[in-house]
Nucleic acid binder design. Structure first.
Lengths: 336, 336
DNA sequence: CTGAAAGCGCTTACAG
DNA sequence: CTGAAAGCGCTTACAG
């Protein structure tokens, strides 16, 4: 910066003014500074900037590697942050990197706020961090006093899914859970509630599922082997749904002729050429917009941390595709 | 840090010494400082650290959102960097964020080196950046004088794939290219070379492919409609292979009975329950290890930027699974 | 083993 | 509109 100032024949503060787009520089001077900077390959130093600046310059994002849902939210976050004066700082959770480490890293980087996608941490631990720095939880509800959150309406979505199946004549539905996942408990609770509300009490089954296609296949095969294949299945995530689908088809159990299958999350991975899975979709783009909105609110000097945190529940949409159809009442072959 | 020093009754430099694990602090003092820091919720500021430190503290990584291959490499990078004194700084490329912007961000963050996964930029642009900061290109060969690179051996892999098909009796092979991808040209060139070397000259076809399952389906359907379905297909990426597979099966063309299909990259997405696709695999973990190794070399004061850049070509392995089988010489039904 | 002082590259008042 | 000076939170010599 000093070099640029010298080369352009101005003071260093003037260069700073030009780069911050602050008032106080003539049109000509501004252009000359910019030209010199370009010529010298000058890049403004973010560390120095954020160290000296009186307000934060960045928003931290904690996400998980290899999850299409997280990638989709991230994509939305970049879009949402584009019009603001903030930049995104990323920190990934993976097999070799715990969520705690990822969050520590973000806290050390002078982020003004933290967005955490699908956190798997205890709510109490998130609370502790939220006391140090504003926290927005995405896709995971947090009822602690300090945390803003944005989630999808599992219950409303589940309602739509079950009603869809009932409309097709299905009288019993088996739900495959996902114990380890961030929204797992919530989804299971939603299913139980909805099943009761829609009078599915006797026909509602909950079975431990998982998060991978492999587990889905195994479950499907167990069902077939036990001669106990339900007429409708809601899988708590799409990988599971895909596995169940594959497992059933492999054993000659028709989908949707004999069994209807619904997935959740609407990942791109679902859009396979062979069969498009009916799925309950989260609106990743709105999730991202709202998350950035919350962060901006906390970052604004006017509002700041004063107000109590806000939770928002976004509707889910049921995308009806190829894997759901009329109930056959066990009259078709394929049932064990 | 000043607060911690005051609270622990020591000087600020002593706190710094403790946190840097530098010699010069008594065991007791060290523990007291650590205890106080924990109690106060002190987090060392990365911006200040990297600004003041005489050597770089971080390595920047530029990757693309929603690509399983990139995620796999990232996972390996986190593992590889764990034992070093450096941290990873991530910057994502996505629909709403150009690769240039992602790299600019990294340059502004005082990274000591940049790892770029599957860059789509012109080599000349990478060169310009490499003059400012050491650059390691992953999965994209760079012959400019300034850039280290680590790639997979497309030609050796292709050799293995074609030989495998020949061993099964296939006399002609159609290659589906991937014009937009980062390694696209290289793979296509590799196929042409290998086809010639293995005497497949007449039977070698190159056809424009793509990067999505949808494109794969379309191509398969065009082949079926034109009555021109080859006996063996190598797709330049796995999504394409999956699409081709789906498209063929849908029209009753048996895989591998009538057509053999090989994909490339061995993404997790390939491990579907129904059919496991034979694929040419990149070793993402070694790719990551080597990339970090290159960066460390450039970062070490001893070696530094003095030596000329090194390129490394890693072997690919052919994972033979369900989609390749003996050639049927057009005697089976299903050929148009 | 411990403390006082300088300085990384910026931004931010404040005086000309 | 422009320049000199202070300071963000650390690390790094260097003196006790």
């Amino acid at each position: 910066m000093r070099d640029v100032a010298r080369e352009a024949g101005v003071s260093q503060s003037l260069v700073s003014i030009v780069f911050r787009d602050a008032p106080g520089a003539g049109e000509q001077t501004r252009e000359r500074v910019l030209e010199v900077a370009r010529r010298l390959g000058y890049v403004r130093d973010e560390s120095a900037r954020s160290l000296r600046s009186t307000r934060p310059l960045s928003i931290g994002v904690c996400f998980r590697l290899g999850r299409p849902f997280h990638d989709a939210v991230l994509e939305g976050l970049y879009r949402a942050v584009a019009g603001t004066p903030y930049r995104l700082v990323l920190s990934a959770v993976s097999g070799s990197r715990a969520e705690e480490a990822a969050l520590d890293d973000l806290e050390a980087c002078r982020c003004g706020a933290l967005l955490v996608i699908g956190s798997l941490l205890e709510e109490s631990e998130l609370s502790v961090r939220a006391r140090r720095i504003p926290l927005v939880s995405v896709a995971r509800r947090c009822d602690s006093a300090e945390i803003d959150w944005v989630v999808s309406d599992d219950e409303g979505g589940m309602d739509r899914a079950v009603a869809h199946l009932q409309g097709l004549g299905h009288e019993s539905v088996t739900y495959l859970s996902c114990p380890g996942a961030s929204g797992g408990e919530n989804r299971e609770r939603a299913f139980r509630k909805v099943a009761q509300r829609l009078g599915l009490v006797g026909g509602a089954q909950v079975r431990v599922g998982g998060e991978s296609e492999e587990e889905g296949v195994r479950i499907a095969e167990e069902m077939v082997a036990a001669g106990n294949v339900p007429s409708a299945i809601i899988a708590s995530n799409d990988s599971l749904a895909l596995g169940v689908l594959g497992g059933l088809l492999r054993h000659g159990v028709g989908v949707p002729e004999r069994v209807s299958v619904i997935g959740m999350d609407d990942l791109k991975a679902l859009h396979r050429p062979r069969v498009k899975v009916t799925s309950l979709c989260q609106d990743t783009s709105r999730l991202a917009d709202l998350a950035i909105g919350r962060a901006l609110r906390r970052l604004s000097p006017a509002e700041g941390r004063g107000t109590r945190p806000r939770g928002t529940i976004l509707p889910m949409s049921l995308e009806v595709r190829d894997t759901t159809g009329p109930a056959t009442l066990g009259k078709l072959p394929g049932g064990a």
